[in-house]
Each structure stands twice: as structure tokens, then as C-alpha cells.
Computed example of a mutant assay.
Amino acid sequence: MKPYRTVLFVPAHKASWLDKAAEAGADAVCLDLEDSVPEELKPAGREQVAAGVERMAASHPAMGVFVRVNAIGTPHFGNDLEAAVLPGVTGIFAPKVNSAVDVLRYDTMLDFFEQRAGVSGLEYIIPVETIHGIQNCEEIAAASPRVGAMIGPTAEHADIAKAVGFEWSPEGLESMVHRTKIMLATKAAGAHPLTALWERTRDLDGLREFTTRGRKMGFRGQVVLHPTHVPVVNEVFTPDAEAIDFYRGLLETYREAEKRGDGAVMYGDIHVDKAHADKAEEWLARVDELADLNGGV
């Protein structure tokens, strides 16, 4: 999966809001058929998905487009998945996944709908938002090559708060353990680690602090609820020019030393060896990947 910095939610029955998401510079959008759509409007939401996806694919082809379906076991699941699998969709946002078996259930259905729609290669973003999901996150991450990203969540009022029963704080210490476990499981499977969620739409300073803490933990992107959050989160997850120059210089210095037959060298006040160079090379490769996203670097 591309290293999306921002995945912005848009209620499926209000697909006209996609234009605002695009204007905000979100790397990906997620048309939501689950919690943000009232029960009586879910059929209408499914009908708007196709038009919204087609419009975004034409106007913003670099933007990722996902659809959050209702969970397995709900009466909406099959209809949602059928409506979501169509040309222009990047993948499925798959809620309430409890085990690797759930992922394989998604795979079975998705294989069928992909063949019928003439598409392929759809990926999952999986929010780990249940107790069983947390316990089984390593197996979930490795269950299918379609698992492109997983979310290590914390929120004041969302499903994860209800499931775990923690008392939320802006600092997030109460969710550090499960978020770290999910982040490590995601990276071990070679998937993209996302975090979430900042619910206070007007508190952009708090958002920046929350996002920065997530980046320092090892997350590389975030689910966001409001267009005004997109520029803040994109900036936090975008390496700045000073850091890029630092790692480029480090890598160049090490390679020059390597040519001389030296396995270690000083770079300013820092002792540099192969491990440092490997990190710099990987870090700079991510910069190149980010440059290809909607909005760029």
C-alpha cells in the first residue's frame, strides 16, 4: 500500500463532500457506509458510492479511494461489499475484524466481486478496534496479502474506547500498549501503520501534538475526520528539508568512506556505520514514495 499520510472520512450518503476532501489535499479518502450513515440512509449511501468513486478516479487519479463497509455479520455487509468493488476503488476499509478467519472471509467475498466487476488488487485497511482484534493482530496482519494497512487506534468515544474501557487522555498513555502492539504487528507483515483518532475538530494544536506523538511511536499516517485536519497531519508526516538534507549527507558520507575501505566514519558529531546508512537509505526511499502521493512532498 502507498504510504498514505492522511485518510479522510466522508459519509457515503454525502459523497458531494469528496470535493472538499480533495481540495484539502488528503492522500486518500474513505467513503463510509458504516457509523456515519443512519440506518435508513444506508441503501442511498451505497447508490452514491459508484458516482463518488468515478468522479474521484477521473479528477484525482493519484488519490486513494477506500470504502468502509458494515461489518461481517451485519445485514448490510454483502450489499456494501458488492457496491464497493468497482473500477477506481483502491480498497476496502474493513471494520470489526476479530481474527485471521475474518480476513479470509473478506478474501472469499472480494475474490468473487472483483471477478464480476473486472477489477483486481484491492487492499484492506483494517482498524484494530476490538479486544479479540488486539489479541490476534499479528495473525490478522499476516492473514492475506490484501492487508495493506492496519490502524492502532485511540479515541475518546469510538469503538476502541468502548472495547478496552480506557479513560482517554490527549497524551494517550492509556492506549500506548495496544497501539504499539498493533504497530509492530503491522510493520512485521510489511504493511502500512496508521493511527487514529483526534475527535476535537477545532483543536488543531492538540491534533498536531497527537500526530507528532504517533509519528514518534512509529506510525506513518493517520485517519482524520475533518478537512481542516488534513494539512496539519500531512505536514507532520512529511519529512522536512533539513531532515532530508541530513540523511542525504549521512548516506553520501558513508558511501565515500566505504569506497576508501572504511566501515565507519564521523558525520559531524555522529559516529556512522552500515546500520546508520541502511536507515538513511530506507528513510530516503520513503521520501521518494511520498513524493508520488496526492499532494506530494
Rank of each mutant, 00 (worst) to 15 (best):
G91A: 09
A100K: 13
R146H: 05
H76I: 01
N136H: 14
I140A: 14
R146M: 02
G91P: 01
Q115L: 10
A161F: 11
D80V: 00
G165A: 08
T130P: 00
P87R: 06
F113L: 04
E114M: 06
D111Y: 02
I125A: 06
V164T: 07
R116W: 01
R146N: 00
S99D: 14
R105T: 14
D107R: 06
V89Y: 12
P170Y: 00
G165H: 06
V89K: 09
I134C: 05
L86Q: 13
V97C: 12
A161R: 10
D102Q: 03
D111M: 08
R105W: 06
G118H: 11
A155H: 10
R146I: 01
P145I: 01
R105D: 00
I131S: 03
V164M: 14
D107Y: 01
P153V: 00
F113W: 13
P170N: 09
G121M: 02
P145H: 04
G121A: 12
E129R: 11
Y106A: 13
L81W: 00
I134Y: 05
G91Y: 03
A141I: 15
T154P: 05
G88A: 08
P170A: 06
S169A: 07
L86A: 10
A155G: 15
D80R: 12
R146K: 04
E82Q: 14
S169F: 05
P153R: 09
V128G: 07
Q135P: 04
H157M: 14
E129I: 12
N136D: 09
E167L: 08
I126V: 15
R105Y: 02
P145Y: 01
E139N: 13
W168A: 10
V119P: 08
V164Q: 12
N98W: 00
V97F: 00
I151K: 03
T130D: 07
